[in-house]
C-alpha cells in the first residue's frame, strides 16, 4: 500500500503572534521564525506510519509513505524531518506560498496522485497559517475519490483496502467507511494513543502525539531521496482564484480590571456588565 502525505511548511506555530505585516500591508513576514511542518500534517505523517507499521513503533512498514511539499527549495528540510520520523521518500514541488491558493495546491496534488498512484492521501485538516481547511476536500473532488475529513480515529483492516473513520464533527462523532483510494484529513485526536487501529498491531497503545525522530532515523533520512519538480513540469495552471489583497492586524481586546474576590466579581457581573 502506498500513502501520500502532503506536508506544508509553516512558520513556527508556537510563535504565530510574532508574524509581522509589511508596511504596505501586502505581505506577512515570518522572519526570524523557524520553519516547521504544519502540526496537522505532522499528525498525518504519524498516522500513515501507524497504519502501515507491523508493530507499535516498529518502523517496519507494510507499504510506502511518500511525503510531498510545495514550497521553496529549502523546504526540503521539513520533508527531511518527516523522513526521519520514518517516511520513505520525499517530493518537493518548487513553489512560492504567496502565489498559491487551495485550488492550485489541490491541482498540484492531483497531478502527483496521477503519477504516484497512491491508495490513500492523508493530510492535516488545515494549515495553521492560511487556516483555510479546503485542500483535502478539493483534492478528493478533483480525483473523484471519497473523502473523510477531520478524522479523530482510523481503523484499517488487515487487507488495507478500506478504512473506518471516526470524524470529529459538531455535536459528536460521525463514523464512515471509505473504500480506497480515498482522501482522509486528520484532526488532533488522531495522535492519541489509540487513534489508529491497523488490526495487526493489536491492542497495544502508542505514546501521545507524533513520534520524535530517533538518531538512527535522522541518519537514515539523510540517504532517503527527495525528488524535485516544478509546477510547470506537472502542467498545472497557476492562475490564482483567490487573492489576498491586503493584510491587517485584527482588533485587539483590551485588558479590563482585576477584581480581588469572587464577591466583587459577582457584583461587577451583575451591576456593571449586567450578564448575571
Amino acid at each position: 500500500m502506498k500513502i501520500l502525505v502532503p506536508v506544508k511548511r509553516v512558520a513556527d506555530p508556537d510563535n504565530a503572534n510574532k508574524v509581522k505585516i509589511s508596511e504596505d500591508g501586502l505581505h506577512v513576514t515570518s522572519e526570524g521564525l523557524e520553519g516547521k511542518p504544519n502540526p496537522f500534517d505532522e499528525y498525518a505523517v504519524e498516522t500513515a506510519l501507524r497504519i502501515l507499521e507491523d508493530g507499535v513503533g516498529s518502523g517496519n512498514l507494510r507499504g510506502e509513505v511518500v511525503v510531498v511539499t510545495i514550497g521553496p527549495e529549502d523546504a526540503s528540510r521539513e520533508v527531511r524531518q518527516c523522513l526521519a520520523m520514518g517516511a520513505d521518500r520525499g517530493i518537493l514541488v518548487v513553489g512560492d506560498d504567496e502565489r498559491l491558493d487551495s485550488s492550485i495546491v489541490a491541482k498540484v496534488l492531483a497531478k502527483l496522485v496521477e503519477k504516484e498512484q497512491p491508495d490513500l492521501v492523508l493530510m492535516g485538516k488545515q494549515a495553521v497559517d492560511g487556516d483555510s481547511n479546503q485542500t483535502a476536500q478539493s483534492l478528493a473532488q478533483l480525483l473523484g475519490w471519497p473523502q473523510a475529513t477531520f478524522a479523530g480515529r482510523i481503523e484499517v483492516p488487515a487487507d488495507l483496502a478500506s478504512a473506518v473513520v471516526t470524524r470529529e464533527v459538531d455535536g459528536g462523532a460521525a463514523k464512515v467507511k471509505v473504500a480506497f483510494p480515498a482522501v482522509i484529513s486528520v484532526d488532533l485526536r488522531i495522535v492519541s494513543p489509540t487513534g489508529v487501529d491497523n488490526t495487526v498491531c493489536g491492542q497495544k497503545a502508542y505514546q501521545e502525539g507524533p513520534r520524535y525522530a530517533s538518531l538512527k532515523g535522522i541518519m537514515k533520512a539523510k540517504k532517503k531521496p527527495i525528488d524535485q519538480i516544478t509546477m510547470d513540469q506537472l502542467g498545472v495552471d497557476q492562475t490564482l482564484k483567490v487573492r489576498t489583497v491586503r493584510f491587517t492586524a485584527p482588533a485587539q481586546r483590551k485588558a479590563g480590571v482585576k477584581v480581588d474576590s469572587v464577591e466583587t466579581l459577582v457584583a461587577k457581573l451583575r451591576d456593571e456588565a449586567r450578564v448575571l
Partner: peptide, 14 residues
C-alpha cells in the same frame, strides 16, 4: 482570520 487569528487577510475571488 489567518495565522491563528493574529492576522486578518482581505481576499477577493476571481
Amino acid at each position: 482570520p489567518m495565522y491563528a487569528g493574529n492576522v486578518n487577510g482581505a481576499v477577493q475571488i476571481d
